[in-house]
């Protein structure tokens, strides 16, 4: 009884079976079903009686493209991703550089403190921020009034609602990417900095020609994960603004939720979900492509 390759292969599949079965049935199958669903007129009547279901081809997608509400949601989501994503990555990198610098004592303490918002429950802190943003009693407007700024109706003003949500989202999750950046920074060999110092390079030049290029892979990873996550924004507008004011914070996922689970237009909502998927996929491929083209 030395080695039984066949026995080992069958036990490999036995170990894999539960996970693969679950992922197949509760993830891949629904994804495939969602694609089919998006070509049907599945609505509240079909929910009760499947005979009412009809294939309608690309009608949902065509209807989507003609719906101003969909374009609003798409625009809002892009706003959130394009402004919030880079801001979040920049704050994360700044925090990582601060915490990781040799000048900083007790880096473990600062790291944990900056990380604290990440472990909180999004819904709970969104509730907290709703009150911080209160135009009359909110702490934020009070602090701004000390600097002579007039009160801002953060969540009620159509122009401020999205920036307010972005600010809250960045506060909530910059700590996560900060940890990844710190890991990346610690992987850079210290000899490189020593050599640069001997050659007379200052702090900025060291940052520009050593830190940034060597952080490249970390940067790509962080940017990708942040983008994928930010495209899926849902709980922040759901709790803080319900998509308002004037639909200015309605996100694609919130639209999908409303259409699918409030009005039971599941065919239409599936089409919304697939557009989101396509956007995330396109964004991912674009970032990978840009990265490849960059000279190393």
């Amino acid at each position: 009884m030395i080695y039984h390759p066949h026995l080992r292969i069958s036990s490999a599949w036995a170990f894999l079976a539960p996970a693969l079965l679950l992922i197949a049935v509760f993830f891949f199958l629904p994804i495939f079903a969602a694609l089919l669903l998006s070509f049907t007129d599945f609505d509240i009547y079909a929910l009760g009686d499947l005979d009412r279901l009809r294939f309608i081809g690309f009608s949902n997608y065509l209807q989507l493209l003609q719906s101003p509400l969909f374009w609003t949601a798409l625009g809002n989501t892009f706003y959130f991703v394009i402004v919030g994503g880079p801001l979040s990555v920049a704050v994360s990198l700044g925090a990582a550089l601060l915490v990781n610098a040799p000048l900083t004592r007790f880096p473990g303490f600062f790291r944990a403190a900056f990380f604290l918002p990440v472990v909180t429950t999004l819904v709970a802190v969104a509730v907290v921020w709703r009150y911080l943003y209160h135009p009359r009693y909110g702490l934020l407007n009070y602090l701004l009034s000390l600097a002579g700024v007039d009160p801002i109706d953060w969540l009620g003003d159509p122009d401020w609602a999205m920036p307010a949500i972005i600010l809250m989202a960045v506060w909530k999750n910059f700590g996560f990417n900060m940890i990844i950046f710190i890991a990346g920074l610690q992987n850079i060999p210290t000899q490189l900095y020593e050599a640069a110092r001997i050659d007379g390079a200052g702090a900025w030049r060291q940052f520009r020609y050593i830190t940034l290029p060597l952080l490249g892979p970390t940067f790509l990873f962080v940017a990708l994960m942040t983008m994928i996550g930010y495209f899926q924004v849902f709980a922040e507008p759901y709790v803080m603004t319900q998509g308002g004011p004037a639909n200015r914070t309605l996100s694609v996922v919130l639209l999908m939720y409303e259409e699918g689970f409030r009005w039971w237009n599941m065919g239409y909502a599936s089409a919304v979900a697939f557009v989101l998927f396509a956007l995330i996929l396109a964004g991912t491929l674009l970032q990978l492509k840009l990265r490849q083209r960059e000279p190393s």
């Binding site: 996922v253 999908m256 699918g260 989101l276 998927f277």
Partner: peptide, 11 residues
Amino acid sequence: VIPAQVAMLPL
């Protein structure tokens, strides 16, 4: 890269 929300309706 597939967002979990895509699976939610059929799930």
